[in-house]
Design a protein around this nucleic acid. Structure first.
Length: 865
DNA sequence: GCGGATCAC
DNA sequence: TATGGTGATCCGC
C-alpha cells in the first residue's frame, strides 16, 4: 500500500539507506569494512518480505520524525523559555540525587555463547565461528566479527560475509551451566548482584572495596581473573558510580578489558559529554528509533545536547521520558539497590514457514499452548490475561488479548481461548505464533489475606473498571518499577507538576499543562480501600453481569446451567452468524446488533417455554443486565411471556432482505413469502424462484470459502457507500487484485453497484495463470456485496486506453457476464452523465447482479459439496 | 484493558 | 531458500 517510498534512495549506492543495525559500533568491529558489509547485507535482503517490512517500518519512523520536527518548530520561544525553567529546576533536583558514594561494577562476558562453545570444542579456537543457524545467529566470536558477522544477523548473510564461517547450534544448558559458575564468583563480591542476563551482571562493590581497602579497578581485576580461573572464560568490566555509567564503561575496553570512571562529578561530566554518539546509543532505553528521533528531529547528537536542549525534550516528550533523557545527559542513573523484580509475563512463541492452512495453524497453536502451560506449571504460575501474537507472512506483528475470569495455567484453558482469538484473525498467513500469559494470581499478593480477596474481587469484576482504576495497585507498582528500569532513584512526578503550575501562574504562560502532567501520578494519599472494597463486593454481587456470550470470557458456571445451549455469537469469515448461518455484511452494524438480539430473544423464548420453573429471578436479571442496551427487548421481556420474533424485524429498507432470509430459514416458507411481499414488493430480491425454492446463488461465505481453496484471501472494506475488495495470496500475503467502487442510485435503476476498478497484479500471482480466476473472485465479492446492499445492476466502464487493451478488457468483462450498454465517447449530451461519473471515455457495461451470481454459482458452490 | 512499538539481550 | 525467543515497558486509545 505505502510503497514507492524507497525511490528516494541514492541510485548509485542504494545500500546506504538500508539502515541495518549490523554496522553499529560493537566491540570487535573496528577494522571492518562497513560499506562492504552494508552492501552485502543490502543485496542479500533486498526484495525479501523481511526487507519490505523494514522499509515499511522505516517509512513509519520517518513519519514519526517528521511529526516530531513539526511539533518542535511550532514551539514558541515563550514556550521554550518556560520549559527551560522546568529543566533548570529539574536539573537541580536531579543533581541533588547524584550519589557518588557507591561503586558499581558491570561485568559482561566476552562473546559468551561462542566462548563456551570454543571451550567445549577447542578446535574452534582461532576460527571464525557463530552460534546459531542459517536463519539466525546468536553470537559470533571475534574472528567472525572481523568479517562483519555479528549477533542477530541471519546466518545466510553471515556466510556470505565470511564463507568459511563455522556454525555451532545453540545449547542453552551449557550456557546456563557456565553462567552459574560466573555467578558463584560474583556472589563473593556482592551477594545481591543483579543478573542482567546469562552473560552480564551488575555488582555493587562499595562494601568489598571498603572492607578490603581496594580500589574498584583492583576489585575488577581480581574478579575477572577469578572468573577466568573458574570458567576459562574472559569477561570485561566497567566500574563507575552508577549502573548506567558502569555499563557504558564495560564496553570500552572489550574484550577482556576494563575501564574505571572515577567517582567525581567533573570527571563524570567530562566523560559523558565527550561520549561519541556510537557509545551513548547503547545506553539502555535508547534504541534505533529513539536515536533517530533525537538526532534527526531535534538535532540531539550527544549527551551534552540532551541537557542543552532539555526544554525541547520536556516540551515534546512525556515527563518520564524527558526525565530519563535529562538524567542520561547528566550521567545519572542506577545507584539504588532495587529489589529483585518478579516476572510479569510468561510466553512461548515459534517461527515456522509461513502458512495459511488453518489445520496447521491450529495444531501449532496447540503445541505452543502446551509448551506455555508446561512452563507455567514448572514455575507454579497462574495468570488471567492471554495474548496471542502473530507474525504474518509479511512480517507484521499482531497481538490479540483477552482477560479471563479465572486464573489458569491449564493447556486446555489456554488453547480454548487462544483458538477463539486465532479464529477471529483467519484467514491469515503467518510465520510465527506466540502465546503469552500475564496478570499472575500472586502478583497482587498482599500481607493482609482479607485484602487479597477483595482485590481479587475487584480485578475479576470487569464492569468495575472505574473503581479498579482508583484502586490500581499495579498502577502504582508500575510507577516504581519504571523508575527502577530507568535506573533512576528519585521520585519525579508530583514535584514537577507543581513546578509547572508555578511557572504557569507566575509567567502567565501558554503551556498546556495537560501535556506535561505525568500519565501516572503517584497517589500518595491513603486509599480507603477496605471500606470501598466492601461496597464493591456488595455491588458486585448484586449486578454481576452475565457475559457468557461475549467472546472473551471463561465459562460462567451459573450461566451454563441456565442456558446449556448458549454459545457466543460470532461472525464466521466476518460474515456468517455461527448460530444460524445468516449472513450480514460487517457494515450492517445496527442490523447485526438486532440480529444478536434475535438470538437472545430465542433464548428467552426457550427459557420461558421449556422451564419457567427452573429459572431463578436472579438469572433473569443477569441476562437483562448485560443486554440493557436494548431497551426494546427489555420492555418486551417485561410485558409478554413470549416475544414474537418479527418484533425484531421492523425495518423496511433494502437491507431487510437479510432478515427475510433469516426468517425464511427459521420459519414457515409461505408465511415468509407473504412478509417478503409486504415489506419489499418493489425489489426483486426474493431468494426464491417461482417455485418457491431458494435460488442457488452463492453466498458471501461460499465465495470466500471457495476462494481459499484457490489460495486467495479476500477482504471487503466499506466506508459509507464506498467499498473496496482486496485479494491477497494467502501464502505470500501479496496483493493479487482489487476492486473498488460505490453503491449509488442511478437514473431509473434504483441502486446500482458502480465498479470503479478491477485491478489484477500479475507479478505476485504465483497461484494460477488464469487472470480470469482472480478477477472473478474479486469481482464476485464486490457483486455479492452489491446484492447484499440491494443493488440489481452492476455497471462499469471499460476504459478506452488503446485499441488492443480496450478490446481485451471488453472481452474479459463480457466473459464474466457483463454486456456492452453503450460507448461513452463524449460526443453526445447523453454521455455527459457517464462522463461525469466515470471521468473518462470507454465502453459502459452493465450486468444484472442476480444474473451474474447465478451464472457464477457453479464455480463457487462446487467447493461446498 | 488492548494493541502497536520499542528495547534489551 | 532463508531474518529468533523471552520479557518488559510505554503510549495512545
Amino acid at each position: 500500500m505505502d510503497n514507492g517510498e524507497s525511490s528516494t534512495n541514492d541510485s548509485s549506492r542504494p545500500w546506504e539507506s538500508y539502515n541495518t543495525v549490523f554496522t553499529n559500533a560493537k566491540a570487535g568491529m573496528e577494522g571492518v569494512d562497513k560499506e562492504k558489509v552494508q552492501r552485502i547485507v543490502y543485496e542479500m535482503s533486498k526484495g525479501s518480505k523481511y526487507f519490505q517490512n523494514e522499509e515499511r517500518k522505516e517509512a513509519l519512523m520517518k513519519q514519526k520524525i517528521e511529526h516530531m520536527r513539526e511539533r518542535s518548530t511550532k514551539l514558541s520561544s515563550t514556550d521554550l523559555s518556560n520549559y527551560q525553567k522546568v529543566v533548570d529546576r529539574r536539573i537541580l533536583e536531579l543533581e541533588a540525587t547524584r550519589d557518588l558514594s557507591r561503586i558499581w561494577l558491570h561485568v559482561d562476558m566476552d562473546a559468551f555463547y561462542a566462548a563456551v562453545e570454543t571451550l567445549s570444542n577447542p578446535s574452534l579456537e582461532g576460527k571464525p565461528m557463530a552460534v546459531g543457524g542459517l536463519s539466525m545467529i546468536s553470537t559470533a566470536n571475534y574472528e567472525a566479527r572481523k568479517f562483519g558477522v555479528r549477533a542477530a544477523m541471519p546466518g545466510f548473510i553471515a556466510r556470505k560475509l565470511c564463507p568459511e564461517l563455522i556454525f555451532v547450534p545453540v545449547d542453552f544448558t551449557k550456557y546456563t551451566h557456565y553462567s552459574e559458575l560466573t555467578r558463584k564468583v560474583f556472589r563473593n563480591y556482592d551477594p545481591h548482584f543483579i543478573a542482567g542476563s546469562l552473560d552480564e551482571a551488575y555488582l555493587d562493590i562499595t562494601v568489598v572495596c571498603r572492607e578490603r581497602g581496594l580500589s574498584g579497578g583492583e576489585i575488577a581485576e581480581e574478579l575477572r581473573s577469578s572468573v577466568y580461573s573458574e570458567t576459562g572464560l574472559t569477561c570485561s568490566a566497567g566500574v563507575a558510580a552508577n549502573r548506567l555509567l558502569a555499563k557504558v564503561c564495560s564496553d570500552i575496553n572489550k574484550p577482556n578489558g576494563q575501564f574505571i570512571l572515577q567517582n567525581d562529578r567533573s570527571t563524570v561530566m567530562t566523560f559523558i559529554s565527550s561520549l561519541p554518539i556510537r557509545k551513548w546509543i547503547k545506553i539502555g532505553g535508547i534504541g534505533k528509533v529513539t536515536e533517530h528521533i533525537l538526532k534527526d528531529a531535534l538535532g540531539i547528537k550527544t549527551c551534552e545536547d540532551m541537557v542543552q536542549k532539555g526544554s525541547l525534550l520536556y516540551a515534546l516528550f512525556s515527563q518520564s521520558s524527558a526525565d530519563f533523557f535529562l538524567s542520561v545527559g547528566l550521567g545519572l542513573g542506577g545507584t539504588d539497590s532495587p529489589e529483585a523484580r518478579s516476572r510479569k509475563s510468561i510466553s512461548s512463541e515459534r517461527t515456522f514457514s509461513a502458512t495459511g492452512d488453518e489445520k496447521l495453524l491450529y495444531s501449532k497453536l496447540a503445541e505452543i499452548a502446551e509448551m506455555l502451560s508446561d512452563d507455567m506449571k514448572k514455575e507454579g504460575l497462574k495468570a488471567r490475561t492471554l495474548t496471542l501474537k502473530l507474525k504474518t507472512a509479511t512480517f507484521e506483528i499482531k497481538s490479540r488479548a483477552v482477560s479471563l475470569q479465572r486464573y489458569t495455567c491449564s493447556s486446555e484453558d489456554i488453547l480454548k481461548h487462544a483458538t477463539k482469538l486465532l479464529k477471529a484473525e483467519l484467514p491469515v498467513s503467518v510465520r510465527l505464533i506466540g502465546l503469552r500469559m500475564s496478570q499472575f494470581s500472586d502478583e497482587i499478593r498482599n500481607s493482609d489475606p482479607s485484602q487479597e480477596t477483595i482485590t481479587k474481587f475487584i480485578i475479576q469484576k470487569d464492569s468495575s473498571r472505574q473503581n479498579l482504576d482508583d484502586n490500581d495497585y499495579d498502577g502504582s507498582k508500575n510507577c516504581i518499577s519504571n523508575d527502577e528500569s530507568l535506573g533512576l532513584s528519585f521520585d519525579t512526578h508530583e514535584t514537577s507538576y507543581d513546578q509547572l503550575k508555578d511557572v504557569e501562574y507566575e509567567e502567565q504562560s501558554e503551556i498546556d499543562a495537560d501535556k506535561v502532567i505525568p500519565n501516572q501520578e503517584f497517589k500518595k494519599e491513603e486509599r480507603p480501600r477496605v471500606s470501598e472494597g466492601d461496597a464493591l463486593l456488595i455491588k458486585h454481587k448484586e449486578c454481576r453481569p452475565d457475559t457468557s456470550h461475549s467472546t472473551n470470557d471463561a465459562p460462567n458456571t451459573e450461566a451454563v446451567t441456565v442456558f446449556p445451549q448458549m454459545e457466543p455469537l460470532l461472525w464466521i469469515d466476518g460474515y456468517k452468524c455461527n448460530l444460524c448461518g445468516i449472513e450480514l455484511p460487517p457494515s450492517f452494524v445496527e442490523e447485526r446488533q438486532e440480529h444478536s438480539d434475535f438470538h437472545l430473544a430465542q433464548r428467552l423464548q426457550n427459557e420461558e417455554s421449556c422451564s419457567s420453573s427452573s429459572t431463578t429471578p436472579t438469572s433473569k436479571r443477569r441476562i437483562l443486565g448485560k443486554e440493557k442496551a436494548n431497551s426494546k427487548l427489555k420492555k418486551q421481556k417485561q410485558d409478554h411471556k413470549h416475544i414474537p420474533i418479527h418484533t425484531f424485524f421492523t425495518k423496511t429498507n433494502q437491507n431487510s432482505f437479510s432478515y427475510l432470509k433469516l426468517i425464511f430459514q427459521k420459519r414457515n416458507q409461505e408465511e415468509m413469502k407473504m412478509v417478503l411481499n409486504l415489506i419489499s414488493p418493489k425489489l426483486n430480491l426474493s431468494p426464491f424462484n417461482t417455485l418457491g425454492e431458494p435460488k442457488p446463488i452463492p453466498s458471501m461465505s461460499d465465495i470466500l470459502t471457495s476462494s481459499r481453496t484457490r489460495n486467495l484471501d479476500l477482504k471487503i472494506q466499506t466506508l459509507g457507500p464506498f467499498f473496496r475488495v482486496t485479494g491477497k495470496n494467502i501464502d505470500t500475503g501479496g496483493e493479487v487484485g482489487r476492486a473498488e467502487g460505490v453503491v449509488r442510485p442511478w437514473f431509473g435503476k434504483g441502486l446500482v453497484l458502480h465498479l470503479d476498478t478491477i485491478k489484477l497484479t500479475k507479478e505476485t500471482m504465483k497461484m494460477e495463470k488464469s487472470v480470469l480466476g482472480v478477477g472473478l473472485y474479486v469481482g464476485a465479492v464486490a457483486i455479492r456485496h452489491g446484492y447484499d446492499c440491494g443493488c440489481r445492476t452492476a455497471q462499469l466502464l471499460a476504459i478506452y486506453d488503446s485499441d488492443l487493451y480496450h478490446s481485451k478488457l471488453v472481452r474479459f468483462y463480457r466473459r464474466i457476464g457483463f454486456e456492452e450498454v453503450k460507448e461513452v465517447s463524449g460526443s453526445s449530451i447523453g454521455d455527459m452523465a457517464d462522463m461525469l461519473v466515470w471521468g473518462g471515455v470507454g465502453t459502459r457495461m452493465d450486468a444484472s447482479i442476480h444474473h451474474l451470481l447465478l451464472k457464477w454459482s457453479k464455480v463457487f458452490l462446487k467447493s461446498k459439496i
